[in-house]
């Protein structure tokens, strides 16, 4: 293409430039077509449901309803509650996972006897299927068979040894605790890897320059970890906001929808209410919110990278 374009004397100006500009896309086109077919087509079809009336039990459904689902959504107080719960669920889970993961990574960074074994053990929760860990924690929180309510009562957090999953005011913390247990290894391991990539002489130079433990952490560890922190927090937040498994396994969104997050609300609408159209509309809104969130975090990360 380009060779010919350069030789033809008539080819100049915009047309020639256009041909040159397009050349790489021709080479990339097989891959692009594949990506469109595998990723974008299902996405587009899924999005299109949001504008149609698709109710499984109604054989006459399937018609185009425009933005009706979105109008309904605007007035759906359950949705707004689920959105609020999603923020609580995501912020609490990610920040606790991150904080505990960081503490664990810093602890595992210093050599101590048995470090290899501890590192392997830390990884275990990550290997447990999420759904299974949800069931496990549901039992742990059950005062009949699990010890947790009795312990919480003993240390004075609960006024009586009851199942927190059945108290609408605090039920959301049950799945959050399970999620933190399950997700800490991810942060611990990625942050540990990032810590280990910091050259030790840099710490030694800082130590000689007069930096104590806290200043070394603030002036060296944090700037070195910042890009990793930004990207892992972004990924985990999107993942957690999107993951209904623990909620569905532990509370099913209840009691009285008090633990419903948007993702589990979509699941409930689609597979319990069998209203696929409305569920798709909710999913579309969640997608948009997460895209905006991802853009913001990516911008923050970019400026962090530029600064370092």
């Amino acid at each position: 293409m380009s060779v010919q374009a350069e030789r033809r004397p008539g080819w100049h100006g915009t047309r020639r430039r256009f041909a040159l500009r397009m050349e790489p896309y021709f080479y990339a086109s097989p891959a692009l077509i594949f990506i469109v077919a595998v990723m974008l087509v299902p996405l587009a079809i899924g999005l299109s449901y949001a504008f149609r009336d698709i109710t499984l039990l109604n054989p006459f459904s399937g018609g185009f309803v425009g933005v009706q689902h979105f109008v309904d959504l605007w007035h759906d107080s359950d949705f707004w509650q689920a959105l609020g719960n999603t923020v609580t669920w995501t912020v609490a889970s990610v920040s606790l996972q991150f904080f505990l993961g960081l503490v664990l990574a810093l602890r595992l960074y210093r050599p101590f006897p048995g470090r290899g074994l501890v590192q392997a053990l830390v990884f275990v929760p990550w290997a447990v299927p999420m759904f299974l860990s949800g069931l496990n924690f549901a039992w742990l929180f059950n005062p009949v068979i699990g010890p947790l309510p009795h312990w919480l009562y003993a240390v004075g957090i609960l006024s009586s040894p009851e199942n927190i999953l059945s108290d609408p005011a605090i039920a959301i913390w049950g799945p959050i605790v399970a999620n933190v247990w399950w997700g800490v290894p991810f942060f611990a391991i990625t942050l540990l890897a990032a810590l280990q990539s910091i050259p030790p002489e840099i710490y030694e130079a800082a130590e000689i320059d007069g930096a104590g433990t806290w200043r070394r952490f603030a002036d060296i560890t944090v700037p070195f970890l910042a890009p990793t922190i930004a990207i892992t927090v972004l990924l985990r937040a999107v993942w957690i906001a999107n993951a209904p498994d623990l909620i569905v396994a532990m509370t099913g969104g209840g009691p009285a929808d008090s633990t419903q997050i948007v993702a589990s609300y979509i699941f409930t609408q689609a597979f319990k209410g069998l209203d696929f159209g409305y569920a798709s509309a909710v999913a579309t809104v969640l997608l948009m919110l997460l895209l905006v969130y991802a853009l913001i975090v990516l911008m923050i990360r970019q400026s962090l990278l530029k600064a370092s």
Partner: peptide
């Protein structure tokens, strides 16, 4: 002064 210089890259 270290052989690798150990400057603070950021």
């Amino acid at each position: 002064v270290f052989q690798s210089y150990a400057l603070y890259p950021h």
